[in-house]
């Protein structure tokens, strides 16, 4: 059995590798929901390619908008380094917050089934 410490290190390493590879190789095509919206607003056929100038109409019902600090997983106007930073920040924050919440929520009870 892989020790927990090694498991965590291996897991984080895999996450970082996947995240960094994603920056260079991830598809720029819209995802399933965006593609569906483009089809339904008449800018794309169901099985056809997505036109490069297709724009998603987002503010359909109005009333709320929010500017995130790192939209689209990058620091604005910083290119690849900004994307790397955003990815590492995202992985680190996900790990730390889930670790913290899980630790508090589980009540730090003793591991009884180890």
């Amino acid at each position: 059995m892989m020790e927990t410490k090694h498991f965590v290190i291996a897991g984080i390493a895999i996450a970082v590798i996947i995240g960094l590879v994603a920056i260079f190789f991830a598809s720029a095509d819209p995802d399933g929901l965006e593609s569906s919206a483009l089809v339904l607003q008449g800018d794309k056929t169901l099985t056809g390619e997505t036109p490069p100038d297709a724009e998603l109409t987002e503010d359909l019902h109005g009333g709320f908008s929010y500017e995130s600090p790192m939209p689209d997983y990058e620091l604005p106007d910083t290119g690849i380094p900004g994307q790397v930073i955003a990815m590492l920040v995202g992985i680190a924050i996900s790990f730390i917050i889930v670790l913290g919440v899980a630790r508090v929520a589980s009540g730090k009870k003793e591991a009884k089934n180890g």
Partner: peptide
């Protein structure tokens, strides 16, 4: 269990990373 807490956290980190890989 306390044993599983780090595993849950590392799973979350991996899911975050892999969600970025379209």
């Amino acid at each position: 269990s306390e044993e599983k807490v780090p595993i849950v956290a590392v799973l979350a980190a991996a899911i975050f990373a892999i969600q970025a890989f379209n």
